[in-house]
Amino acid sequence: MSNLYYAPTKLYIGSEEERVGEIIKEMGYKNILFVYGKSSIKKNGLYDKVVKSLKDNDLNFIEESGVEPNPKVEFVRNVLSKNYDIDFILAVGGGSVIDTAKSIAVSYNTNFDPWDFNSKKETPNTALPIGVILTIAAAGSEMSNSCVISNLSIEAKNGFNSDLVRPKFAIMNPVNTYTLPKYQTACGIVDIMMHTLERFITPYESDLADNFCIALLKTVYKWGLVAYNEPKNFQARREIMLASSFSHNGLMELARPMCFRAHQFEHVLSAVHDNIAHGAGLAVVWIAYAKYIYKNEIAFKRFLRLAYEVFNIEKTDNKEEDCYNGILKLQEFFKDLGMPQNMADLGVSKDELEDLSLRVSWNKTRVIEDVIPLTYKEMREIYELMF
Rank of each mutant, 00 (worst) to 15 (best):
N233S: 08
V226L: 08
S153R: 12
E74G: 13
K329S: 15
I287R: 09
V20E: 00
L54P: 03
A137P: 05
S349T: 11
N161W: 07
R366D: 02
L180Y: 00
L254W: 11
D355P: 00
R199P: 00
P373D: 09
D351P: 02
N249K: 10
I154W: 04
A137E: 03
V285S: 08
T9Q: 06
L59P: 00
V268S: 10
I154Q: 11
N249C: 14
L152N: 14
S206T: 12
P71R: 09
D163R: 03
R199Q: 15
T316Y: 06
E266F: 06
L356A: 09
P167H: 02
D113N: 14
I89H: 06
K319P: 01
F234H: 11
N249A: 10
F61G: 01
N145V: 01
Y108S: 09
Y47Q: 00
A299V: 12
V67L: 07
E122I: 08
T196F: 05
E314K: 15
C187K: 01
I133R: 02
S39F: 02
T9D: 05
A186Y: 03
A156G: 07
L353V: 10
N325Y: 07
A209H: 13
K38T: 10
I293M: 08
A290V: 12
L197F: 14
F212P: 03
I23K: 00
H195S: 05
E378R: 11
Y29W: 04
Y383P: 02
R166Q: 12
E253S: 15
E155V: 02
Y5D: 04
T196R: 05
L33Q: 10
W223Y: 15
F246M: 12
D345M: 03
I13R: 02
R359F: 07
I86W: 04
F234K: 10
I130Y: 03
V284L: 08
M1S: 13
V20I: 10
S65C: 14
D345E: 06
L330H: 11
K72P: 00
G250L: 08
F200S: 14
K329T: 13
P257A: 06
F333V: 05
E378W: 07
K49F: 01
M193C: 13
N275I: 02
M143Y: 03
S96N: 04
G224Q: 04
N342D: 15
L330E: 15
R238K: 14
G188C: 02
F75I: 08
R302P: 10
A290I: 12
I368M: 14
I189E: 07
D317E: 14
K222W: 03
M258D: 06
G224W: 06
I240D: 04
G37H: 02
V190C: 13
L4I: 14
L4Q: 11
F334V: 07
Y204S: 08
A101H: 06
D351I: 05
L251G: 09
A7H: 03
Q184E: 11
T123D: 05
F387Q: 04
V73K: 07
K120R: 11
A227K: 09
K291H: 13
K232W: 01
L11Q: 07
A156Q: 14
I368V: 11
P174C: 02
L54H: 04
N229K: 12
N109P: 06
Y108K: 15
V268Q: 03
E26F: 00
N145H: 11
N145F: 05
L385C: 10
S96T: 03
